[in-house]
Nucleic acid binder design. Structure first.
Lengths: 246, 246
DNA sequence: CGATTTTCATTTGTCAGACAATTAAAAGTC
DNA sequence: GACTTTTAATTGTCTGACAAATGAAAATCG
């Protein structure tokens, strides 16, 4: 763990990287306690504030956690799927909101991912998964349901589909894509007609899953993907028109 | 933007969250300059050090960048795919190295993702993509190639396959999965026999892509997935045996 | 006047020292 | 032995200072 005081990089960045490297290559193990801030300052020959800024950088990435008090300190964090998923969601949301990626691209990625889950889900789905999906479909047919609630149910439905695949890596990757699309998705389910169509496709997918027919699940998803993209396009077009002639 | 000095959360965390929220909901736009650290300190009624720790947290997530000097300061960052991919890779690497996810799960996710790309890649692949893949296959047949070099070429092959799908979201998601698996992948390509088999499957996949036959690409990937999982298992078993009887 | 150099004000990066808040362990008390 | 108090260790926050970078304004020169 060495740093160069004459580098163009900030000291706190260098220190954060040194500690991260130590974690990644195994010199620091999960739940192991780091030296105190004062000790780190001595080791790296910097002040405590600089060490603290480095630790905050690592904490922001869930690499460490800190605890006050005697026998407190900074500990190497075991990165959980929840943490990773949280990071994924914030990153994806920003990517979409800053227009680095458009709705069509996100939509395509989302359904490609779900499609990848289809055969696994068909094979591994439990009765529980199926029951959850049926319940969500039923909720989606309620007439008084708000757009937000419909959309939340839609997310829950798809999330269950992915969870049924039994692969947490896929689950957390999809979570980012879905969550980021949420705001725009809210806008494209506002007519009763599109809801009807979506519910019909959801039912088809659930039926296919019940029959453990992966190929049929894929076909249902493909159709849903096409429909969603279409709706997204028309909403975007309407928006653009409103902007030019307000 | 308000914070609660009596909350159990650290002040720097609260401030970081307040600023992040302002960025996400659009109050702060891309490339917009934040107030100076001193001004932020006044606004939130905290010291400059606390503000700085909050800003470091945001910088660690690439949400802001800072610049010294007159007319310097902190600016809202436009999150790029490269930044997002970098975060994805570090996160995935940690997930795997900390055993929150095992090789089999990562492997399954990886090939599911590639499989999702198959139809898109078959449709959109350019002559360039194909040429790159052929070149990598040719490199993989060189007898003197080191394991690391073979593996790097393998990664390049698959990366091209995904890039051919023309969806940057899928590309950056896969990058994390592949990169994280790299160390173990290095260990499972050490016999000439397995290389032969892998090259044969790569050729099959490239042929299918050339013929724009998405289904055939999927079949090739499925077989490769099965073979890789199998190799991974045997390597893991050999490792375990070595550990019990050293 | 135009181009170049110098000065200067602004802002972040780093440092030093202090105190508050928290917490686990040690010491004391019944 | 169970409970309470004290204590020491550690992070969280504050204050004030100086260094380093940097763009803009001022001064200088041809």
């Amino acid at each position: 763990m060495k740093i160069d005081p004459n580098s163009s990089e900030d000291l706190s960045v260098q220190i954060a990287e040194a500690i991260r490297a130590a974690i990644v290559n195994g010199d620091l193990r999960v739940d192991q306690r780091l030296p105190t801030e004062a000790e780190l300052g001595e080791q790296f020959d910097v002040s405590r504030s600089t060490v603290r800024e480095a630790l905050k950088r690592l904490a922001a990435q869930s690499l460490i956690r800190t605890q006050r008090g005697a026998s407190g300190g900074a500990f190497v964090n075991r990165l959980s799927f929840e943490d990773a998923q949280g990071q994924m969601i914030t990153t994806s949301t920003l990517l979409l909101s800053m227009n680095a990626v458009d709705f069509e691209t996100a939509c395509e990625a989302r359904y490609a991912l779900e499609r990848a889950c289809a055969p696994l889900a068909a094979f591994r789905r439990s009765a529980d998964h199926l029951a959850t999906m049926r319940a969500e479909i039923h909720r989606q047919t309620q007439p008084g349901l708000s757009d937000e609630a419909f959309c939340a149910s839609d997310v829950a439905f798809h999330r269950t589909l992915v969870d049924a695949a039994g692969n947490p890596v896929l689950s957390y990757q999809l979570a980012g894509a879905v969550e980021a699309m949420q705001p725009l998705m809210n806008m494209i389910t506002f007519t009763a007609r599109s809801r009807e169509r979506i519910v019909a496709l959801h039912t088809r997918i659930a039926d296919a899953l019940e029959a453990r027919d992966g190929a049929a699940v894929e076909r249902g998803l493909a159709e849903l993907a096409g429909y969603t993209t279409e709706l997204g396009k028309s909403v975007a077009a309407a928006r653009a028109a409103r902007r030019t002639t307000p």
